[in-house]
């Protein structure tokens, strides 16, 4: 972008992909500076006095969710690869995932609640898989 004679401007098509990102980056930088200038006290305060993350959160449930989700995402295409274009990867991976997440979130694991969680874990993915993959013929992993 050539802005030598503002407000006239000429944009070279070959480099036009950089015009807007550059503008937005500069704006973002200015805003960041403005925030630092007006709020440095608050920000500094947050840095110097604890408690630091991840203190004060439920470690087991938070990191459990993330770990299970990552495993779920990794497993889906792998399993699906054995049955190309059937959507079984989604179905087979979702059932244990749903069950484990439910168990993770339960506070009192009574037999009744575990049974409900298990039924839900089997039923919900099956219904979704059947409706989307078969009835609407959407591609699932």
């Amino acid at each position: 972008m050539n802005m030598a004679s503002f407000p006239k401007v000429s944009i070279d098509f070959a480099s036009s992909h950089l015009v807007f990102p550059m503008l937005v980056s500069v704006l973002l930088g200015l805003l960041l500076v403005a925030i630092l200038v007006t709020r440095w006290r608050t920000i500094w305060g947050a840095f110097t006095t604890g408690p630091y993350w991840p203190a004060g959160i439920d470690h087991r449930r938070f990191f459990g969710t993330i770990v299970l989700t990552v495993l779920y995402f990794l497993a889906m295409p792998q399993i699906g690869d054995f049955f190309p274009n059937e959507g079984y990867g989604f179905l087979i991976a979702s059932i244990p995932f749903l069950f484990l997440i439910s168990l993770l979130y339960l506070h009192q694991r009574t037999r009744r609640q575990i049974v409900i969680a298990a039924i839900n874990a089997v039923l919900a993915p099956t219904v979704v898989w059947y409706l989307l993959s078969t009835a609407f013929s959407l591609t699932l992993p």
Binding site: P84, N85, E86, T134, A135, F136, S137, T139
Partner: peptide, 25 residues
């Protein structure tokens, strides 16, 4: 809409083309 699941089974059973995958994307 696929509510006639029976039909799907019949189609699957009588698949003739061995070379081609049953589900082609």
């Amino acid at each position: 809409l696929g509510f006639a699941t029976g039909l799907a089974f019949v189609t699957a059973a009588s698949s003739l083309a061995q070379e081609l995958p049953k589900n082609l994307r």
